[in-house]
Simulated assay, not measured.
Amino acid sequence: MEALLTSTAVVALAEIGDKTQLLAILLATRFKKPVPIICGIFAATIANHFLAALVGAEVAGLLDSIWFRYAIAASFVAMGLWTLIPDKLDEDEAPKPARFGAFLTTAIAFFLVEMGDKTQVATVALGARFHAVLPVTAGTTLGMMLANVPAVFLGKAVIDRVPLTTVHRIAALLFIAIGLWLAAQTAGWL
């Protein structure tokens, strides 16, 4: 249960203002079909985050040492610092005219844009931390949906009213707190 809840909270906060959330807004504006877009986000996230959690769990199993646990803790702190840098969707990453409809365009675009994104890196770290692929995948997917479904329905109006700087700071503090907690746990202080 800890893996599910932690994964949900970490990714939901990290996703706010992220380039995939901006992509969700662009797709919603372009297609004006929220259900296929939401289904596409869900399908892409399940596939991408399952693979990321699997990589994290497998790497952790191979490198299960005290230094690896410190590296995982440090990766959460680094993710917190990275979260302070807001994402922008580059023009070359904006969705091109679609040939495949809202669902397939969204699924492909989200899967590709999520590659190497901070939420995917966080999913790898969470998989390594918890050694639990399915709960981490479920949690990170739920976090993505909590952040992106409102973006699809409310689009730009939400982004204009949410103080993203504050949200980024809260998300950064959460990542850093988890990293420090993991380091303290590894050191035997907790």
Rank of each mutant, 00 (worst) to 15 (best):
M144K: 09
A132G: 02
N148C: 04
K156R: 11
G155D: 12
G155F: 02
G143I: 09
G143W: 03
L146C: 11
L126M: 07
P150Q: 13
G143S: 10
A125S: 15
A147C: 01
M145E: 06
G143L: 01
V124R: 06
T123S: 15
V133L: 08
I159R: 10
A125L: 15
V158Y: 04
A138M: 15
M144H: 11
T141P: 13
V124C: 10
V158N: 06
P150Y: 04
L154G: 05
V149C: 02
M145I: 12
V136N: 10
H131K: 05
L126I: 07
A151H: 01
G127E: 05
L126Y: 01
P150D: 08
H131P: 00
A151T: 02
T137L: 15
A125D: 12
A157T: 08
T141K: 07
F130N: 04
V158G: 03
L154T: 04
G139P: 11
G143C: 03
L146D: 05
T137R: 07
T123V: 13
L134Y: 12
D160Q: 10
T137G: 13
I159E: 10
G155C: 08
H131D: 11
A147N: 02
F153Q: 07
P135V: 09
A128S: 12
N148F: 04
L126A: 07
L142T: 14
V149M: 02
V149R: 01
L154D: 05
R129E: 15
I159Q: 08
A125F: 12
G127M: 08
V133N: 06
V158L: 15
G155Y: 04
A128W: 06
F153V: 11
I159Y: 00
I159S: 03
T140I: 14
R129K: 14
A125Y: 08
T141E: 09
L142R: 00
G143K: 05
L154F: 12
L146S: 04
V133A: 11
V133G: 05
D160A: 14
T140R: 05
V158F: 02
K156F: 09
A128Q: 07
P135N: 12
F130V: 05
K156I: 13
L126E: 08
P150K: 12
T141C: 11
L146I: 14
G155S: 09
L154Y: 07
V136P: 06
L126W: 05
L154E: 05
A157E: 14
V136R: 01
G155H: 03
A132H: 03
K156Q: 15
V133I: 15
R129T: 15
P150V: 13
I159A: 10
L134D: 03
V133Y: 13
G139S: 11
N148W: 03
T123R: 01
F153Y: 13
A157S: 14
A132E: 08
L126R: 02
F153K: 02
V152W: 01
V152M: 02
M145W: 10
T123N: 07
V133F: 09
A157G: 02
T137D: 12
R129W: 13
P150M: 06
A147G: 00
A138I: 14
G143Y: 10
G139N: 09
V158Q: 05
